[in-house]
Design a protein around this nucleic acid. Sequence first.
DNA 1: AACTATTACAACCGCCTTTCA
DNA 2: CTGAAAGGCGGTTGTAATAGT
Length: 359
Amino acid sequence: MGRAPCCDKANVKKGPWSPEEDAKLKAYIEQYGTGGNWIALPQKIGLKRCGKSCRLRWLNYLRPNIKHGGFSEEEDNIICSLYISIGSRWSIIAAQLPGRTDNDIKNYWNTKLKKKLLGRRKQSSNIHGLSNQDPNDPHQPTGSDDNQLSQGLSNSAMERLQLHMQLQSLQNPFSFYNNPALWPKIHPLQEKMIQNMQASNGNPNLLMQPLLPPNPQPANEQSTVHQQDYPEISNTKGLEGLDNCLDGISASDGSVPFGNGDNLMDSTSTDAAVQPGSSFQGELDVFLNHKSSTTGGYPQEDQMVNQLDCFRDINGSKDSSIWWPTDFDAKSASSNSWDSTSVLQSNGMFQDFELGYPM
DNA sequence: AACTATTACAACCGCCTTTCA
DNA sequence: CTGAAAGGCGGTTGTAATAGT
């Protein structure tokens, strides 16, 4: 038994909105609001549109302060970084970019940004005489040979990016969800809560525990995350912290995904100071901004690839992120949808979380 | 000039979650 | 507690505009 349609499909208009329809919808919502019921809205206005369609039109096009196109390099960076960290959670990504809609970002990523990265990668590979192998390109020799493949991987930031994507899709323990250091502008109380939880449990990996596969490595090589390693992300350094944490994710040996606190928040680091193979952000910059950056091999990348294997058995369902406060999605998405207030700016990212846990 | 391929973006679809009677 | 309705989201499709041949 299927689900009842949200509207009478036979009597609703589909396709592009006319200026008249836009004007009607905009005028009504600006005057009366949605009334909390999108389904009933088109009837009130006299539009032959599905309520969902009205909602989408308002959110993506008609509401005030919407920006279209003209993505800045900074926005590119944010989108890339968040995509790598959390995957295609466009509503969350959009929440970090005031005035941008999830739909816009999704389209931008699919049509431009992804290709921009791939294009730059090819360019970069040619310039540096690196491998041109593209695992997604069927016309190129495939990496059937593991050594060849890993060699290609070691020489391409894009492939590393793709690995990050794979990692993300497998809900790796160091992804945005599982890495408090990645949380934009973590609230001090939230940080304390984590500390308390970890202290009471005696296990620094409490939050990731359900996700971790049997560890195939010796104990001394385990990816241990200590709370003291989490940098306190200040208002001004939230994104920087995010970027730096990407470095941690891309750490080739996997043993120091979050590095030490010094590295993580060392805002004085320059491109020259960045160690080859440790700064994914640097490579991202190269791809996005043509910044010059020292490139080099990633001697332990083979090991990293091996370690990726250890995640492949993890159930990739996002439901496995059981600890993630569902309010975050709702709040961030709604804040973006209605007032374009970034979660980063609102200070409210973890408010509900705090309320639920006495400090 | 005509045709084809590509790009960009708006909109739709279907599924999942949340709300509420 | 339960199920229907509505909201929300991500993936996909349709189409107009543009570029290339």
